[in-house]
Design a protein around this nucleic acid. Structure first.
Length: 429
DNA sequence: TGTCCACTGGAAGGGAGGGCTT
DNA sequence: AAGCCCTCCCTTCCAGTGGACA
C-alpha cells in the first residue's frame, strides 16, 4: 500500500498519455510489421531460408545509415524463425514443414559496439551454446587460439546451422582489424557437424577497405544496402507505432508530421523519429497535459540534444574532461579558435595545479581528435605557413553549462576555482 | 624554389590490470 | 608462485605535411 504522503502518490494520480507499453516507441522494439522494408525482408528471407533446409546460407553484408532498419529487419527474421520453432514444437508434428528443419537453426546476435574486442566477440558467441556456468569461456585470461578452439567445439557439438549476426561490425574492424572475421569466415572448413553463416551489419560502406581480400570475398557473398527513409515513409512508421502506443485523440494534428520531418533532415533516421515522439509524449505526460502538441516535439528535440551532450561529457575519462575544460576556459577568455599547443599548455597547467601528472602532447592530440569525433568540439588541421601546421580548435557545446557540469565531477573538483588565460604563456591567476 | 614551423599521426613498445594455466 | 595471454592507456620516436615567407 502507498500512503497518502508517499512521494510517488501525486505522480501516480496523473493519467498516462500512453495506452500501454511505451517500449513500443523504443527503437529496440520489433513490431509485427516493418513498413517500407518489405522488400529487404523478402530478400534476406530468400537467402536465409537455406538455413531451414539445413544448409549454410550465404554470408551477407548489410549497409545503411543509422535508423534505416538494418538491425530491425535482421531481428525480425530471427523472431520469425523462433516463432516457427515454437509452432513446430507445439504442433508436435515432425513433418510440419516438410523437408525443413527449423529446430536446428540458431541465431547469435553480437553488437560489436558493446563487445568491441576479438576476445569478447569470440567469447560471447561461444557462450551462447553453454548452459553450465563452469563451462563458460572466462571473460579474460585465455589465449585467443584456445577461445577460438573452444568456440568451434561448442558450435560443432551437434548438427545445426548457426547464423551469427555481427551488428556495428565496422566498429570492431576499424578498432581491432579483421582477425575475428578471418577466423569466423573460414570456420566452416573446420566444422564436421554444423555450419556457420555470418550477417555483418555496418553504417559505413567503406569499412571493407580494412579487410584482407580473402575475408572480404568470403564475407561479402551477398550485399544489401538499406536506403534512408524519406519523410513520408517515416510518417507511416510513426503512425503505425503511434496507433499501438496512444489513444487516437491524444496526438495533435501535426505531431507525427513534425517528428518525421525533423528526423528526415537527419538522413532519414527512424530511430530519431521514434525517440522524438516518445520524449514528446513523456514531456506532455510529466506536465499533465492531455494532448501531445508540436510544442512538446520542439522541446523534446532540445532535450534529446542536451541529454546527448551531457551524457557524452559525463562519461569522458578525467583527462579528456580536463582537455575539454581547458578549451572552454581559454576559449572563453581569449580568441575563439585555439591551437593544439595552446590547449596543451592550458591543460598541462590545469593538471599540475590539480595534482595530476599531465599526459604528453602526443596523447592530447588523440584526446582532441576523440572530442572532435564526439561532436563536443570542432577541430580541423590548418597550416599557418611559416607558423606551422596544427589543429584549429573550437568548442561546439554551450560553454557555461558544460563548465558547470565538468566542475561537478568529484575527481577534478579542485580545478573549480582555478582561472586561466589563453595563449602559449598560459598562467593561472 | 627551398626553408621552416608546429605540429600530425603512424608505429612500436612499455606496463598495469584483469585473469588463466601449470 | 611464476609464467603466460589479452586489452587498454600511455610514451617515445620520427617521417611527413601545407603553406607562408625569403
Amino acid at each position: 500500500m502507498i500512503g497518502q504522503d508517499n512521494i510517488f502518490k501525486s505522480h501516480m494520480d496523473t493519467s498516462s498519455v500512453f495506452k500501454g507499453d511505451r517500449d513500443i516507441l523504443r527503437p529496440s522494439y520489433i513490431p509485427e510489421q516493418l513498413p517500407h522494408r518489405e522488400e529487404q525482408i523478402q530478400d534476406l528471407a530468400s537467402i536465409m531460408v537455406t538455413a531451414l533446409r539445413g544448409n549454410r546460407p550465404s554470408n551477407v553484408l548489410i549497409f545503411g545509415k543509422t535508423g534505416t532498419g538494418k538491425t530491425a529487419v535482421v531481428r525480425f527474421l530471427e523472431r520469425e524463425v523462433n516463432r516457427l520453432k515454437r509452432e513446430n514444437s507445439e504442433s508436435e508434428l515432425d513433418d510440419e514443414f516438410g523437408d525443413y528443419d527449423v529446430d536446428r537453426v540458431e541465431y547469435v546476435y553480437v553488437n560489436c559496439e558493446v563487445v568491441d574486442t576479438h576476445y569478447g566477440v569470440m567469447k560471447n558467441i561461444g557462450n551462447k551454446f553453454v548452459d553450465e556456468w563452469s563451462d563458460q569461456i572466462p571473460f579474460t585470461g585465455w589465449p585467443m587460439e584456445k577461445v577460438y578452439d573452444s568456440l568451434r567445439e561448442k558450435i560443432d557439438e551437434e548438427p545445426r546451422v548457426v547464423v551469427i549476426i555481427l551488428d556495428e561490425l565496422d566498429k570492431l574492424v576499424t578498432k581491432n582489424g579483421d582477425s575475428v572475421l578471418y577466423h569466423l569466415s573460414k570456420i566452416n572448413s573446420e566444422l564436421k557437424n554444423s555450419k556457420v553463416s555470418l550477417i555483418g551489419i555496418s553504417n559505413n560502406l567503406k569499412f571493407t577497405e580494412f579487410l584482407d581480400p580473402r575475408v572480404k570475398s568470403r564475407l561479402g557473398e551477398e550485399k544489401m544496402i538499406f536506403p534512408p527513409y524519406d519523410a513520408e515513409q517515416l510518417k507511416d512508421i510513426l503512425a503505425d507505432r503511434a496507433g499501438q502506443a496512444f489513444e487516437s485523440e491524444i496526438l495533435g494534428n501535426d505531431v507525427i508530421s513534425l517528428c518525421s520531418a525533423l528526423a528526415a533532415q537527419e538522413h532519414g533516421d527512424a530511430r530519431r523519429a521514434l525517440d522524438l515522439l516518445r520524449v514528446s509524449a513523456e514531456i506532455a505526460e510529466r506536465e499533465k497535459d492531455e494532448n501531445v502538441t508540436t510544442d512538446h516535439v520542439y522541446r523534446a528535440k532540445n532535450k534529446i540534444e542536451q541529454d546527448c551532450v551531457r551524457e557524452a561529457v559525463n562519461t569522458l575519462p578525467t583527462h579528456s574532461k580536463l582537455v575539454l575544460y581547458s578549451i572552454l576556459l581559454i576559449g572563453d577568455n581569449g580568441g575563439s579558435k585555439l591551437t593544439t599547443g595552446e590547449v596543451f599548455s592550458a591543460y598541462s597547467e590545469l593538471s599540475k595545479r590539480s595534482g595530476m601528472d599531465p599526459l604528453t602532447q602526443r596523447r592530447i592530440t588523440d584526446l582532441i581528435s576523440e572530442l572532435d569525433m564526439l561532436g563536443l568540439i570542432n577541430a580541423r588541421v590548418k597550416s599557418f605557413g611559416r607558423r606551422g601546421r596544427t589543429k584549429e580548435i573550437q568548442a561546439s557545446v554551450p560553454k557555461r553549462d558544460i563548465i558547470d557540469l565538468i566542475e561537478s565531477d568529484e575527481s577534478i573538483e579542485s580545478v573549480k576555482h582555478l582561472n586561466i588565460h589563453g595563449g602559449k604563456q598560459t598562467t593561472l591567476i
